[in-house]
C-alpha cells in the first residue's frame, strides 16, 4: 500500500509536515517561505515589546489632576484663569506629573493662550524653550500632540502646553508671539506633517525639500539595509526578531 502525499491545500492541520521547500533546485539559493512571526515567540498585537508576551501594554490614560496642584502650579493656573476669559473653554486638562505642569489646550486657542502666557504680568513666560510633537498613533484619535515648553525667566518657572490634533487638522502658529518657534514649527511640520497656519515660511528644514513622508511618524518605517558581518546577515533594527 502506497502512501499518497497529502495536498497542503486540502489539509486542515495548518502547515504540513515535510513541506517541500520551494525553489530547492541545485545551485539555486534556498527560498524559505516568509516567516510571519513578529515577537520572539510569535506573539503579536498585545502591545508588549518584550517579545515574551506576558504583559499587555495599554495606552496610558492622561487624567486631570485635582486641585490644589502644589508649588507654583496653582499660581500659574489661577493667573491664567484670571487673565484669560476663555480659560474654561480652552483648557481641556491640567496635569501635574513628576513635578511638571502640563496644560492641555484646544488647538485653535493655542496662539491666544501663548500670547497671554507671555504678556500677563503674573505669568511672564518670556521664552519658548522648545516646541516639538509626539505621535500617539493608535492610542489617541487626535494622534499628534504638539508640545510647547515655556520658561519664565522672571519667576523661574516652566510650564508645558500641549495641543492634540488629528492628522490634517491645522494648529495656529505661535511665531507671532515667540519668533523662536519659527524653526521649531518647521521641524515639527517636517517630521510629523502638522500644519501651522500663519507661519511665515512653513517648509521642510531637516529633510530635503523633495522628501516624501514625515519621518518621525510612528507609521513611517525606520528603514535601513541588512548588514553582512563575517558571513552572517544582520537585518535592519526595525526588522529584527526581538523586542520590536
Amino acid at each position: 500500500m502506497s502512501i499518497e502525499p497529502t495536498n497542503p491545500e486540502q489539509s486542515t492541520g495548518g502547515v504540513p509536515v515535510n513541506a517541500e521547500p520551494v525553489g530547492a533546485d541545485i545551485d539555486a539559493p534556498a527560498q524559505v517561505p516568509p516567516n510571519p512571526r513578529k515577537g520572539m515567540f510569535g506573539i503579536t498585537g498585545s502591545g508588549d515589546v518584550s517579545g515574551f508576551g506576558g504583559l499587555v501594554r495599554r495606552a496610558p490614560e492622561v487624567v486631570s489632576t485635582p486641585k490644589p496642584y502644589g508649588g507654583y502650579f496653582d499660581e500659574v493656573t489661577d493667573a491664567l484663569e484670571e487673565a484669560y476669559p476663555g480659560f474654561a473653554d480652552a483648557i481641556e486638562k491640567v496635569v501635574v506629573d513628576r513635578g511638571q505642569l502640563t496644560l492641555h489646550i484646544k488647538a485653535e486657542r493655542i496662539a491666544e493662550v501663548a500670547q497671554i502666557m507671555r504678556d500677563d504680568e503674573s505669568l511672564r513666560f518670556e521664552l519658548c524653550s522648545s516646541l516639538s510633537a509626539v505621535d500617539y498613533l493608535n492610542s489617541d484619535p487626535r494622534r499628534f500632540h504638539v508640545v510647547y515648553e515655556l520658561t519664565s525667566m522672571t519667576y523661574r518657572r516652566r510650564v508645558r502646553l500641549e495641543v492634540a490634533v488629528a492628522d490634517g487638522v491645522t494648529v495656529p502658529s505661535v511665531t507671532s508671539v515667540y519668533p523662536t518657534a519659527d524653526w521649531h514649527e518647521r521641524e515639527t511640520y517636517d517630521m510629523y506633517g502638522v500644519i501651522f497656519t500663519g507661519h511665515p515660511n512653513l517648509t521642510r528644514i531637516l529633510m530635503p525639500d523633495d522628501w516624501e513622508g514625515h519621518p518621525q511618524r510612528k507609521d513611517y518605517p525606520l528603514g535601513g539595509v541588512p548588514v553582512e558581518y563575517k558571513g552572517a546577515e544582520i537585518p535592519p533594527p526595525d526588522q529584527r526578531r526581538v523586542y520590536q
Binding site: V49, R57, A59, S130, S132, V134, D135, V147
Partner: peptide, 16 residues
Amino acid sequence: HAVSDGGTHPYRVHMR
C-alpha cells in the same frame, strides 16, 4: 523632552 509609554524603549525623545 522624553516620553515613555511604559515600555523598554523611549516612545519619543526630542532634543532642543
